[in-house]
Structure formats: C-alpha cells, structure tokens
Design a protein around this nucleic acid. Structure first.
Length: 512
DNA sequence: TTCCGACAGTGGGGTCGCAAT
DNA sequence: ATTGCGACCCCACTATCGGAA
C-alpha cells in the first residue's frame, strides 16, 4: 500500500465528524490492505509509530525539502526506513539522522510530507483510534463487529486480529479464545459522584475497596506465572512477591484480576508514588523489593481451570475467586441488596477511607466482565476536594483548542501575600468557558510572548482535585492530583483565595 | 570517569462535545 | 436521555543517552 493512500484517508477521516463516515473510510482502506501492511497501517492510523519516538526534533523536520511530484513511497518502505533511522546512534548521529529524514521527505509528495510530519511529531489527530478501526475492520471483512471487538480484547491487540482477519477472513476469529498466558484488556470503571447514585443505578451490588496501586492481571499455568499491567506489559520480573503469592494459591491454572499495592509496617497503604516507583523499578529489583514490598489484592477471576468466566455474572466469578484466593488476598467488600441498603454502602466507604484507601468501586452483581471497556456496571466513588485558587498564567491550546487559552497555571496564597504555583489543569472547561477565559486572561496579560501567557494574579477559580502529592517541581513541594476546573469565582478577590497553609493542613499525611 | 539534564516511556487520571442509539 | 469514544493535557517515576564537569 502506498503512503499516499494512507495520507489521503487520514485527511478525510479527520475532516468528518460522523463516526459512520470514518468507519466507512477505514473499511475501504482495509479492503485494499495486504496482511503484511497491517502492523504498520494500524499504528499509523492511530498516529503512532511502531518504533516509538525517533529522536527527530523540530529543528530537523522544519527544514524544507522539495517534495516529489508523484507518490511512490510504500508504507512498508517508509517503516523500514524509520526503523533504520531509529538504529542510528553515536557520534555524528544527529547529522546522519537529518540526512535520512531529508531523503525520506524528498521522496514524498506534499500531502505525504504533511502526514509524515504529523506522525513524527505526534500531531495526527483524526478522531479515529482503535474503536473506530475495529468497526472499519469488521465492515471490510464482513465479520460481526461484536465478534471482532471480542477478539481484540482477547488478543489484547487490534493488530493481531486485523492481520488474521485480512489473511484468513472471519473464520480466523475463532482462534482468539481466552487463554492462560495471553493477557486480556482489563475492564475499567466509570465514575459516580456518590455511593447513593451508584447503588441507585446498579441495584444489588458489591461495594469494594478501591486501592491506589497498579492494576495487574495474574496468569498461572502450573508452575509458571506471568503478570501483566493494564496496557498488557509483562512485568513479571519486577514483582517476585506476586509470583510467590500466585504459586501459593490452590489452583494450577487461572487468570485473576487485581491491584498490586505496597503496605507500610503499620499496615496502612503507602502513597501511590511509592507503589508506582517500586513497580517501575527493574534494574535492582531485589533492593526495591526490600525497601518497598508489594502485595497483590485480587477482585475478579477471568478463567479457572480453562473455564472462561468472562460472560458469567460477577457474583459467580467472585464465588470462583473466593474458592481460589484466601480472604487477606482479596479486596474487602460489602454486599448491598439495593437502594434501601445505601446506608450500609456509605458506612463501608467511610471505613475504607479511614483505612487510608482511595474510595470504593460499586459493582453490579449480574454483570459480565466487559474486557477492554469502561463497563457501566463498575462505578468508582472517590471523595472530591475543592479549593479556590488564582490563575497565574495560561497556555495556548492545540487541536480543537487552537486559538484558545487552555491549560491554566494555578496558584495558592502564601504567607507573604504572593502566590505559589501548585500545578496546571486543562480539564472541566466547557467551550463557553474556554472562549470567556481566553478573552479575560488576555486582558490580564503581562507577558504574551511564547506559548505561556502570564497574567496578573486576579482571577479566582474553583478547582476540584483528588488529593495532594509530593512534588519536586513546584515551590510549595506539593501538587494537586487530577485537578479540574469547577467554575470561575468572579465574586471572590485573590486575597480570598485558599492558602498553601490551609491546603497542607487539610492533608496532614503529605509532607512537602 | 562520573554527574546531570533532557527525553522517552511507564503508571495513575476527569470532563467535555458529538454521534449514535 | 444515555452511552461510547476521542480529544484535551496533567502529575510522578524510572531508565537511558549524550555532553559537561
């Protein structure tokens, strides 16, 4: 397949907002693709390079190269060239890379150049990622979309399924079954604003602890154990404790879903930063395991003794889990029969927070495991904190926010009357707010050079956040976790904004 | 030789707008 | 009305690599 074809389709997909049209365009593309093109076409469509970042910066890319008149580049050819480019390192490598980029660009037409530039800088935004590609693929191969979707979840990769489908047709889908040793995309949760709302929606449910750690999928096949993350990375070697724990369970073949987290000597959960740091350590695992030991806490069973449990109701999956996993290695939970029992659910949330955990996940007892999706039957509930902060600066947005001041720099008052930056946010703004703040902030601007617009600290904004965490980046030594805008407080003056002092007092467990 | 800064890649995430149902 | 998806970008952490000390 020619790169020109891909560039053209990408442009068309970006130009329409209709999902059905995007799907039809991708279907047409897939019909013309050979199976061998798939490992390249799929990531390209999502705006990713299979090689990852290549260390080619703006300096090299902004150098103009005369475009070719006729399209001749094949996607496989481009991929091979970029792979070569990724391998170039050492002395003089920058110049050599620049030369190679120049050569590639010289062989590309104007449209292709634009597309390549987007790919290399990560600027391809066409409103079609995996989910849309799945639909397109189903349409192209005349396979039922639901079957394709399920195969992708079981394979953990659209690419694998696409290759099989294009090579062998819909019959190939049968090959994708839940198999121990082959990770499945995990089910994710939606948010609810209160336990009452969640229980109202779900009826009979389990209210489970939400632990602030790293999601893991644990596969055991006899004496062999493999551990995967949410994105299906194999992290077995980093977590020897989990392998040991899995081997202790009284089952020989299973797939379990859970969270890995580190508890301190006092039995309370360590901060997310500590757990994540430990799980991220791979060079000296033995030392890391000694300083920050981790434990698995399971909450679901996907397969036991080669029985696929995905379509069973949660209540039955949990019964299997309970047979296999002793109580201390399972998340704590409370069973709630429905809205009339909401007080019980609220009590459980209070106790869970008291234990130092993040919140709860409310799960419908009847629901199947929706691998790879944000199932409506899992609802997380976490307490939300709010603060009144002052806007110190804002950054120009990209994509659909081009021309709008988007990312806000947030400051809290300090003892001497100045403001200490606590972090940034771009979340929670409606289009109307974006328009309004772009205008208002430009009136307050003191420095409009570059992509950060500094403003007089006069505008007060109410910010919701999930918690405080330590920071080496910000002056107060702390930053907000998951900050988002609630509303502007034009009724408040900056002198009335919250202070660093009160913020720290509200989170005594966080030491700056 | 060792140190340091820049960067890539991992983990965690909420809310809005639009299309489709 | 509700749901699903993509876009908008944040934070911290670890690892690696090239150039400075």
């Amino acid at each position: 397949m020619l790169l020109a074809r891909l560039a053209h389709v990408s442009q068309e997909v970006a130009a329409t907002s209709a999902r059905s049209r995007k799907i039809a365009l991708l279907a047409e593309l897939f019909r013309d693709a050979e199976a061998d093109d798939v490992p390249i076409v799929i990531p390209y469509l999502a705006g990713r390079l299979p090689q990852g970042r290549l260390g080619v910066g703006w300096k090299v890319l902004s150098r103009p190269v005369a475009p070719a008149g006729e399209p001749s580049l094949a996607v496989r050819e481009v991929d091979a060239l970029l792979s070569e480019l990724g391998k170039v390192s050492g002395t003089g490598s920058q110049a050599e890379r620049a030369r190679m980029v120049g050569e590639l660009m010289g062989a590309a037409t104007e449209d292709e150049q634009r597309y390549l530039l987007g790919l290399l800088t990560g600027e391809v935004r066409q409103g079609a990622l995996d989910a849309v590609a799945v639909e397109g693929l189903a349409q192209a191969t005349e396979a039922p979309p639901a079957d394709v979707r399920r195969a992708v979840m079981l394979a953990g990769s659209l690419q694998t399924v696409a290759q099989a489908l294009l090579a062998d047709g819909p019959a190939a889908l049968d090959r994708f079954r839940l198999t121990v040793g082959r990770p499945v995309l995990p089910m994710l949760a939606h948010s609810a604003s209160s336990v009452a709302e969640a229980v109202d929606k779900l009826g009979a449910c389990a209210v489970e602890e939400k632990l602030d750690g790293i999601r893991v999928q644990v596969h055991r096949d006899g004496d062999s154990v493999r551990i995967y993350t949410r994105t299906l990375d194999d992290i077995t070697d980093r977590l020897p404790e989990l392998t040991a724990a899995a081997l202790e369970l009284n089952g020989r073949r299973f797939i379990l879903d859970g969270e890995v987290i580190s508890f301190g000597a006092d039995g309370r959960p360590r901060s997310f930063q500590e757990t994540a740091g430990r799980v991220g350590s791979r060079v000296d695992v033995a030392t890391a395991a000694e300083t920050v030991p981790v434990s698995p806490v399971f909450f679901d069973a996907l397969s036991v003794d080669d029985r696929d449990l995905l379509d069973l109701p949660f209540a039955e999956r949990h019964a299997e889990l309970a047979r296999l996993v002793p109580e201390p290695m399972r998340v704590r939970r409370a069973l709630v029969s429905g809205p009339q029992d909401v007080a019980e659910a609220e009590r459980f949330l209070a106790v869970t927070l008291e234990r130092g955990h993040e919140g709860v996940v409310v799960k419908g007892l009847d629901a199947a495991y929706s691998a790879g999706r944000r199932g409506a039957s899992w609802l997380k509930v976490k307490p939300v904190h709010t603060l009144d902060l002052v806007v110190l600066a804002a950054e120009w947005g990209h994509g659909r926010r081009t021309g709008k001041l988007s990312n806000l720099h947030l400051g809290a008052r300090t003892a001497d009357g100045t403001f200490a930056m606590l972090g940034k946010t771009f979340k929670g703004m409606t289009d109307a707010m974006l328009t309004w703040q772009t205008e208002r902030l430009q009136e307050l601007a003191t420095d409009t050079n570059g992509h950060v617009v500094t403003v007089r600290p006069e505008l007060v904004v109410e910010i919701a956040y999930d918690g405080l965490q330590r920071s080496t980046r910000y002056p107060a030594g702390v930053t907000l976790r998951f900050a988002r805008v609630v509303r502007y407080r034009e009724d408040k003056r900056p002198e009335e904004a919250d202070t660093v002092e009160t913020l720290l007092a509200a989170h005594p467990e966080v030491k700056p």
